[in-house]
Amino acid sequence: MSTCNAKKALAVLATLPLVLLLTVFVSPAAGASNIEVQAPDQVTVGESVTVTVTVTNAGEPVVGGEVALAFVGGVGGESGWVVVATATTDATGSASLEYLQRALDATRMRVEYFGPDGQENTEFNIVIVDGPQLHQSDAGADIPILGVWWLVVVLAVVWVLIGLAAWRLLSIPRSTRPAARLARFVPRLMVGFIIFTAVGMFVVILTKPESHANLDPGQEFDRTPRALVGQVYEYPGLTAGDLAQTSNELDGRQLYVQAGCASCHSVGGDVGAVGGSIVGEDAPRSVQSLIDEIREGPKGMPAFSEGTLTEAEIEKIFDYLQTLPANS
């Protein structure tokens, strides 16, 4: 067995120089292929982009070549080429590469080609215009029939059955001769307690904003967008490209997030689940009124002292709030 294997190995070794020789003479020189890229000049964040690549060699289309599209991306201070799409060239030597423009930072692009005639790269730029930032959900599943109302129904059935079991006890003191008055108290108390606890549970589930949001997604309290695994949805956060504002407004925006205004009044200021809207009609009338409200802390809002937010800072927040649309 081992002799046989050794012979095979020798045969392979002997043919190797021949193969190498043939490769050198037969294959064309690396870099001889030509890459033509057709890409849009400008892309909006959130848009689906198609880049068409045509690879030719001495005027002839290259078939079956691998092409990859990459942009300069960075994670944790390290940056490098990140591949976003790959494809294989067809009979005409073309391949189309599709990707979703997720962020503002990828302007420098590169097409890499690996084919039978060698490897080639070409780089180009795409201008990226700010649009809604996108988030991809990493958890959660949406089963159409299975909603919160089922939970409510199940809970209701359980509570009704417990209540019924206690309700049957009401008849026990009634059938005693002579009727026991003191004895009626316990079953009544029990039924009362069960009704109170059950109703309390439903009131809590149905009325509180945090849970109400999830009972009726899409309403103003919807803090957690519901999405399927891997589904892409709009992220209404701060966009880095929103640079048309003055520096005062930019500072105001930063302060608005830093001081915690955004956590109750929402980033856009219009759909806060806890604090409610503070833009459009609800916007503060003047800098002074905003200062007064922030210092006092009306309707359960925490008060912010001079040490936390100075008047100059509140003025900047006011300037920023003025730039927010009533409905973002």
């Binding site: 049957r168 006890l169 026990i172 003191p173 005693t176 001769r177 004895a183």
Partner: peptide, 25 residues
Amino acid sequence: YQSLAIGWDNNETQRRSLAKSITVL
């Protein structure tokens, strides 16, 4: 005991109510 026994004197109606309640539970 008087309060919690809710006037139980082991009559037919009471036994039926009790049995139904126990079954549900």
